[in-house]
Computed example of a mutant assay.
Amino acid sequence: MTTPLHNQIEQAYAEFSRQREALSALAAESERAETTVTSKNRAISVTVNGRAAVTSIRFPISAYRTMPAAELGNLIVETIEAARTQAANEAMERYRSSLPEALSDMDPHNGGLDVEAMFSRAARMMNDDRLGDLLNGQRGGGRHE
């Protein structure tokens, strides 16, 4: 015979497993993602991968040939940053639909999202809050502030 607490724990674990699978699929999608940004003057086009690493810099038109070196350098840096920012925002949008509200504030910058860290945090939250509430409720107690 199973207890109500056991059933609740099994349900919580099943939901946790479903969320983990969904996030793993999103992580794989993010790994395959590419984002390309072209500078406003169309002189430079930068592509970054799902981890915001630069994979390509192209010069679609010959405008770069007549640009002063400092201007060209600044344009390259600005375009790379714009591509990284756009890639991070696109990744966050992919995750936002599947993330619990408490996890949606994670910063995707600096190398992408760490799914394992997200699950560690979720497990701690579940252990601290939901599981604690389940155990306290099962004992007839509850949280006392």
Rank of each mutant, 00 (worst) to 15 (best):
R96G: 05
Q86E: 14
G73Q: 11
R58H: 02
K40I: 13
N74S: 12
P68T: 02
Y95A: 06
E71P: 09
R94A: 09
P108Y: 08
S24M: 11
S24Q: 13
Q11D: 03
G50T: 00
E93F: 05
R32S: 15
V37S: 06
V37A: 05
N74I: 00
G112C: 11
E34I: 00
S24G: 14
T35L: 05
R58N: 13
T35Q: 08
L75H: 07
T36D: 04
E93M: 09
S30P: 01
L113W: 10
E21Q: 15
L72G: 03
P100Y: 07
Y95G: 03
E101N: 07
S17K: 11
E78C: 10
A52Y: 04
D105N: 13
D105H: 09
Y64M: 06
N89C: 04
A27K: 07
R96M: 11
R18W: 00
T36I: 02
M92C: 02
E71H: 10
A88R: 00
G50S: 01
H109D: 04
Y64E: 10
S97L: 14
A22C: 00
V115R: 14
I9A: 01
D114W: 03
Q8F: 00
I61P: 01
P60L: 00
T47N: 05
E15K: 08
A43F: 11
M106W: 06
G73T: 13
A14R: 07
G50N: 03
